[in-house]
Design a binder for these strands. Structure first.
Length: 677
DNA sequence: CGAAGAGTAGTTTTT
DNA sequence: CTACTCTTCG
């Protein structure tokens, strides 16, 4: 009656069954780590009789979470799974703050600000339009938050004068968010971590709920996340974290691989289990990956192996420019599909940065090759989606000034920036949100409002007021309300007046998709609008298509978004110095010493190398890498050099293993077989 | 106030 | 090439 998959190897089985204390599973690429996590959850629930609502599994992406849920429901019944939490850190943070937000000065209906909103706040506070500067400050604030530093603590350990300004902004930024009754993405993890640290009673309450914790992609945790995990698992210390130091690619987001070592220090009884058998790739691909990654310093030694045969040679293509590269990809896709009798979905094209997808798309369309794009601009970052959501956010939380402004100006309602500015200072003087200040602003005599302005503002006020009375609707009623709202704001008309026919149509379709999805969500889960809104900004709409089976199409993805995926045949394009490894702008470290700059650079190269490693290890059977001699960047055409990672991969002793045909008859047969089955 | 037109910079990766 | 900002005019 065991639920344990008999196909697990010894190490995997050990990882699943080990319950005597904290465990760190070092899982190399393709070593079956997701399987270990899902099997372990099944083991906990079915064999060890853990209560499902005492088990938590944390992931970084929604995609990973939904995949895990899917795999679990193949093994366990819905009843067994009820109460189990499988979700992202941010998702759990939201749930946490819903319940405990009051301890952080948050009302129940706080808003979640995305990167755009927070950019706007920083812009306002900086009183500047310098993109680079705003983004630098925003990034710095985010890093401080992820390191669990308060504005004061940040100010106390400035490493450069330019950070002084950022620290000041950080302070006001916090005050602004508090006034808006809003949190940003970072807060969803930071506030729970802080509260667990400072509030003993609250901490105990949550610790009682967590009898077993599992964390996926542990190498990508930042200080905040680690701190939160550390507190959640007290005092039992019953947890399993799974990760691979060679696949740590989120340092730029505050993730620190040191969390792997800290774990050892904080939990001396930590059990280390290494998964080194790779079930994904042929040996030649693993050899290439190992050649590259061995140029990084070793943290935990690991040697991946596979028994899937030698495989064909890795192909490296030198292209004239990015158009030639795209054409080469398209041509090879066609040729390979036919030759291998493969399907489109067996292929993936991976690249360092999103804009590389553009040219590619052009050529794939031209060759009539179906493709799907993963990563890239999130659905929720689209202007039309944010517009519609602004109304919902405002309704859920009238203190949400960014939502107020967006709703008032999209579509335009005859109120311009001058009036808005005045309302802004009026509200600030009173210490009220824009919404709360609006009635007295309208009555105030010394504002010299024109009749049209007054009328426009009044119209908006009355409209929102009317909608507000329906905010507590649930289920079907809420769904009806959504439709009413959409019609009332005349958004379709706005889109078509603003954009050309075709783009307007596309945008409107996005809105319809959104509302469709919202309505379904609200009915299925019996949610109120207020509850819905918070979810929406976090949950990707992936679930939307979960039923439609994946179309037969080539996968286009950034290297980051490709982590965790695998494909029989992979194209890794743009392997050039400056792109992969990507080298940031020099001014970034303008006020660091030469030594610091050099150390920083070395770190970045290492992270880029891990990215390359991730890319290579996505491939199961064949890998093609390309680079361009010239590449157009903005208005100039730059001469490029082949990525150092290619040289590393081909380093003298490795060349034969990577590119030459296998020698023995067995190997030769294996290669033939891999081509035809 | 806002629509239309001219001008200009230009995003590494994501919850 | 394009997406966003700034300017000008109605």
């Amino acid at each position: 009656m065991t639920v344990i998959d008999p196909k697990l190897n010894d190490k995997q089985r050990e990882a699943v069954e080990y319950l005597s204390g904290p465990a760190l599973v070092l899982a190399g690429a393709g070593s079956g780590k997701t399987r270990v996590i899902t099997q372990k959850i099944a083991y906990l629930l079915q064999v060890c009789q853990y209560d499902a609502d005492r088990v938590l599994a944390l992931t970084f992406t929604n995609k990973a979470a939904s995949e895990m849920r899917e795999r679990l429901s193949a093994v366990l019944s819905a009843r067994q799974l009820r109460g189990l939490f499988v979700g992202t850190f941010h998702g759990l943070g939201l749930r946490f703050l819903r319940q405990e937000g009051k301890h952080a000065g948050l009302q129940e209906r706080f808003s979640i600000m995305d990167a755009h909103d927070s950019y706007a706040v920083v812009q306002e506070l900086l009183n500047s339009t310098d993109r680079g500067r705003i983004m630098a400050v925003q990034q710095q604030i985010s890093l401080w938050k992820n390191a669990l530093l308060s504005p004061d603590e940040a100010a106390a350990q400035l490493s450069s004068p330019s950070q002084q300004e950022a620290a000041n902004i950080y302070r006001s930024y916090e005050a602004t968010l508090q006034a808006y009754q809003a949190v940003d993405f970072d807060d969803l993890v930071r506030l729970p971590a802080l509260l667990m640290r400072t509030d003993e009673e609250l901490a105990q309450r949550w610790q009682q709920r967590v009898h077993y914790l599992l964390v996926d992609e542990y190498q990508d945790t930042n200080t905040c996340q680690y701190e939160w995990v550390r507190h959640l698992v007290q005092p039992r210390a019953q947890f399993t974290v799974v990760g691979d130091d060679d696949q740590a690619i989120y340092a730029w987001r505050g993730a620190t691989v040191e969390n792997l070592q800290r774990l050892k220090e904080d939990f001396p009884s930590l059990k280390l289990i290494k998964l080194e058998q790779n079930y994904r790739s042929v040996q030649r691909i693993l050899a290439a990956a190992n050649r590259v990654i061995e140029h990084n310093p070793v943290i935990f030694g690991k040697s991946l192996w596979s028994d899937l045969g030698y495989g064909e040679a890795i192909h490296i293509e030198e292209c004239a420019n990015e158009r030639a590269e795209a054409e080469w990809v398209a041509f090879n896709l066609m040729q390979n599909r036919t030759m291998r009798q493969a399907q489109w979905r067996d292929f993936a094209v991976l690249y360092r940065s999103n804009h590389q997808a553009r040219v590619l798309e052009q050529f794939l369309r031209q060759f009539r090759i179906p493709y799907v794009l993963t990563g890239g601009q999130s659905f929720f970052a689209k202007a039309e989606i944010r517009d519609v959501l602004a109304y919902l956010r405002l309704l859920a939380n009238t203190d949400d000034d960014p939502a107020f402004i967006r709703a008032l100006t999209h579509p335009r309602k005859g109120v311009g920036k001058v009036t808005l500015q005045r309302l802004g200072s009026f509200a600030a003087a009173q210490g009220h949100s824009l919404w709360d200040a609006l009635p007295s602003f309208l009555l105030s005599r010394d504002q010299h409002l024109s009749a049209t302005q007054k009328e426009a503002l009044e119209g908006f006020y009355n409209f929102i007021e009317r909608m507000l009375s329906k905010i507590d609707y649930r289920g079907q009623q809420a769904a009806d309300f959504l439709q009413l709202l959409l019609r009332a704001i005349e958004y379709e008309h706005y889109l078509f007046s603003r954009y050309d026919e075709r783009p307007a149509q596309a945008r409107w379709q996005n809105v319809l998709d959104l509302v469709d999805w919202l309505m379904r969500k609200v009915v299925e889960d019996e949610l109120s609008i207020a509850e819905l809104v918070q979810h929406v900004s976090l949950v990707a709409m992936l679930e939307n298509n979960e039923q439609d089976e994946a179309p037969d199409a080539v996968h286009l993805s950034t290297l980051h978004a490709a982590k965790g995926l695998e494909f029989p045949h992979v194209f890794l394009i743009g392997a050039e110095e400056g792109l992969l490894p990507h080298l940031g702008r020099k001014e970034d470290d303008a006020d660091a010493t030469d030594e610091e700059a050099a150390a920083g650079l070395a770190q970045r190269i290492q992270e880029e190398r891990r990215l390359m490693y991730v890319g290579i290890t996505r491939a199961q059977r064949s890998l093609r890498i390309s680079w361009c001699q010239r590449r157009r960047q903005g208005r100039e055409d730059l001469v490029r050099e082949r990525s150092r990672f290619i040289a590393e991969m081909l380093s003298a002793e490795a060349t034969q293993a990577v590119t030459e045909p296998p020698k023995s008859a067995d190997d030769y047969l294996a290669e033939l077989k891999s081509l035809f089955d």
